[in-house]
Design a binder for these strands. Structure first.
Length: 285
DNA sequence: GTTCAGGTCCGAT
DNA sequence: ATCGGACCTGAA
C-alpha cells in the first residue's frame, strides 16, 4: 500500500472503499467523535494507542491519518484501521458463507465501507464490560470519565485529551470512586478486571482465537457476548459473532428465527457488523 | 410510572 | 444444562 506524506505527522493512502463515518459510528469504538468543523468532508478524532489522532476522507477517496509519525503508520495505524485486510475478499467470502442471503447482500451494499478496527485489548475489555445492559451514549460517557480520572493527559492543538488508563493506573481506582462515576453494578467488574490484568494474573497478551472466550469469561462481568466483542475488536478473530439485542432481532425478523453459527464462517464477525450497522440505520429512518 | 439500552450473575429447577 | 428475576443509570 502506497503511503503519501502531506506534512509532518500527516499521511494519506488511497482507500476508495473506506467509510470513516460508519467505521467509527458502528458501535465498536467509544472514543472517537465527528469533527463538524473539519476542512475534510468527513473527519473523526479521538485517542488510541496513547495518541490523539484524526482520520479523515477527502474528495479523492484518500484516507488521511493525522497525528502519528511515519514509522507508526506501518507498525500501528494501518493495522488499527483494518487497512491490512483484503475486504473485497472478505465480502465475497461472507456472501458465499451466507449463501447470498438477501439481507446480508443489502447490508454489504449499504455499509460495506465499514472496517473492523484492531483496538487495544485492555481498553476494549473495559469498554465492553461497561457496555452491558447499557446504551452507546452512556457507554461513551463512562469510558471518557475513566480516561479523565485515571488516564494520562495528552496535550493537543484542540486542548487536553486523555489516554485510556493502563491496567496499573486503573487498578488504583476504588470501587466507591467508580460508583460515583455512575457505573452502577459494573464498578466492581472494572475494578476486578483492572486488578487481574495489573497483577499479571490475567495475561491479555496470551489471548488467542482458540482460548479467548474461555479466558475472558473467567472474568467477573464478562459473558459470552462481551467476550465475543473483545475477540472481534481486539484479538482479531473475525469469526467471532457477537449476538446482542439487535442481532437477536435480526435473526428473528430477517433469518426466520434461527441462524446456524457453525456456518457463519471465518468472517462472520465482519458480517455481524454489517448487519448490526445496517439494521440500526434502517431503524433510524 | 414504565421501558429500554451492543448482558451477566445467581439461585432454582 | 437451562431458565427467570434482579440489576445501576438515565433518556424517552
Amino acid at each position: 500500500m502506497q503511503i503519501y506524506e502531506k506534512s509532518v505527522n500527516h499521511f494519506f493512502v488511497y482507500a476508495p472503499d473506506y467509510d470513516v463515518e460508519r467505521t467509527f459510528e458502528c458501535g465498536q469504538c467509544f472514543r472517537f467523535e465527528k469533527n463538524s468543523d473539519s476542512t475534510f468532508p468527513c473527519e473523526y478524532s479521538g485517542v488510541a494507542h496513547g495518541r490523539y489522532m484524526q482520520f479523515a476522507t477527502d474528495t479523492d477517496k484518500n484516507l488521511h491519518i493525522i497525528g502519528a509519525p511515519r514509522d507508526e503508520i506501518d507498525s500501528i495505524w494501518l493495522h488499527y484501521l483494518g487497512l491490512d485486510r483484503d475486504y473485497d475478499k472478505i465480502k465475497k467470502q461472507i456472501l458465499k458463507d451466507f449463501d447470498n442471503h438477501e439481507f446480508v447482500a443489502a447490508a454489504i451494499k449499504q455499509t460495506g465501507g465499514l472496517r473492523i478496527l484492531s483496538q487495544e485489548r485492555f481498553e476494549t475489555l473495559c469498554s465492553f464490560i461497561l457496555s452491558q445492559n447499557n446504551n452507546i451514549p452512556r457507554i461513551k460517557k463512562l469510558v471518557e470519565a475513566l480516561c479523565e480520572k485515571y488516564g494520562r493527559q495528552i496535550k493537543t492543538s484542540q486542548g487536553v485529551r486523555y489516554a485510556f488508563p493502563s491496567p496499573k493506573e486503573l487498578a488504583k481506582a476504588e470501587i466507591s470512586d467508580l460508583e460515583k462515576m455512575k457505573m452502577g453494578y459494573r464498578a466492581r467488574y472494572i475494578k476486578n478486571a483492572a486488578a487481574a490484568v495489573a497483577s499479571g494474573d490475567f495475561d491479555l497478551a496470551a489471548l488467542t482465537p482458540d482460548n479467548a472466550e474461555e479466558m475472558l469469561m473467567s472474568l467477573l462481568g464478562v459473558g459470552k457476548k462481551v467476550a465475543a466483542c473483545i475477540r472481534l475488536f481486539a484479538v482479531g478473530d473475525y469469526a467471532s459473532f457477537p449476538v446482542d439485542v439487535w442481532v437477536g432481532r435480526i435473526i428473528e425478523t430477517r433469518f426466520g428465527g434461527k441462524l446456524d453459527f457453525s456456518k457463519t464462517g471465518a468472517y462472520g464477525g465482519v458480517a455481524q457488523q454489517y448487519l448490526f450497522c445496517y439494521e440500526r440505520e434502517l431503524a433510524a429512518e
